[in-house]
Simulated assay, not measured.
Amino acid sequence: MNRNNIYLLLVFMLAGLGVYAQSPDDYYQIAAENNPGLKAKYAAYEAALQKIPQARTLADPTFSFGYFVSPVETRVGPQRARFSLTQMFPWFGTLKAQGDVAALNAEVQFQEFLDARNALFFRVAQAWYPLYELQQMQRLEQENIRLLESFKTTTTQKYENGMGAMVDVIRVDLLLNEAQIELEILNQKEASLLSRFNALLNRAYNAPVEVVDSLTDMDLLPDYRKDSLLVNHPRMAALDLKVKSGEAAERVALKQGLPKIGWDSIMCWWMSAAIWL
């Protein structure tokens, strides 16, 4: 539990880094901080943690009070009122078993939080990489337009000086026009990608996004296999924990069916004095 809490704090305490070039990891942190569904999952986990000490404590004692309109005659005098304080003790091991169920349920909530976080990160990556590709293509087209404009100036000067053909100028114009149209198409496509990406970050649809210039290689774990995905997947872990929680709840039910030990303190009030029985 403590290790998971420390890991979770590292996820949420890192803030966004403005509009400078950012990697997917930076946007994962922003999405985790701004996503209400993920916050709700973590709040459910915290609520489950609060139930653990409650499950391991005794039930509240029962206090009762009775007043006799007509005094009841007893061997020590007329009885006017009766006070009773009762505390029930469950069978041995019941409280520990209840605590185990609560702890397992809390761990289930945490694994479900991790599953929701991973799903959010996956959606962010799905939206970020097309945006990265588009911005790289925009940079290439802008550089291509710059080179074509420079080449157009050169071919035009050569044609005016009688050192070049008109066909070269026309060819450069066609290529330049094609590159400008392609850049405009990319700019229009960028708006929809930005809107989709910013929606995942829960911020304004037109908020600027600057991606890194290049990507770094991702090293796969040496034991990366399909079966390891099932073993380490939070959803599979949550299902296993639910099974264990059900088994622990069954043990609690058996113990709760066993006899309970009660302690009862009664105080009666007579007209003359109050004594403990």
Rank of each mutant, 00 (worst) to 15 (best):
L147Y: 13
L140T: 11
Q142L: 04
E190Y: 02
R196C: 05
R196I: 02
E149N: 10
N187H: 15
V172E: 04
L147P: 03
R139D: 05
L186K: 03
N202K: 12
Q136W: 03
E133W: 03
A199L: 12
L186Y: 10
E141K: 06
L193D: 11
Y159W: 13
N198D: 11
L200S: 07
Q157I: 07
L183A: 06
L201S: 05
E143Q: 15
Y205H: 15
E182A: 13
V172P: 00
Y132N: 04
E184Q: 09
L175H: 04
T154F: 02
A207C: 02
E184K: 07
T156Y: 08
N161L: 14
E182D: 14
N202Y: 15
L186S: 04
L200M: 10
L148A: 05
N161G: 08
L147H: 13
E190K: 11
D168L: 01
M137E: 12
V172G: 01
N144R: 11
A165C: 02
Q180T: 06
A204D: 15
N206R: 11
T153N: 15
L131C: 03
R146M: 11
Q135H: 03
R146P: 00
R196V: 06
M137A: 12
N177Y: 05
I170E: 12
L176Q: 04
Q138K: 09
E149Y: 10
N177D: 05
M137H: 14
L200I: 13
Q138M: 09
D168F: 01
L131W: 06
A165M: 09
R196L: 08
V167E: 02
Q157S: 07
M163S: 08
E190H: 14
S195V: 10
R171K: 09
E160F: 01
Q142K: 06
N187G: 11
V169N: 00
L140G: 00
A204T: 13
E182T: 11
Q157W: 02
R203G: 07
V169E: 02
A207Y: 08
K158E: 09
N177A: 10
Y132F: 13
L200D: 04
A165V: 13
Q188R: 15
Q135Y: 00
R146H: 12
Q180C: 02
Q180H: 01
Q157N: 06
I145Q: 08
A199N: 12
L174Q: 00
M166T: 15
L175F: 02
R196W: 10
A199V: 08
L140I: 07
R171P: 01
E141V: 10
L147K: 13
R139H: 07
N202T: 12
E184G: 01
Q157E: 08
L148R: 03
T156R: 07
E149M: 14
L148N: 05
Q180W: 03
A191C: 15
K158C: 01
L200F: 09
T153E: 14
A204M: 14
L201I: 10
E184Y: 04
N198K: 07
R171D: 04
F151Y: 15
E143I: 11
Q180Y: 02
L200V: 11
M137R: 12
N144L: 12
V167K: 06
T155R: 01
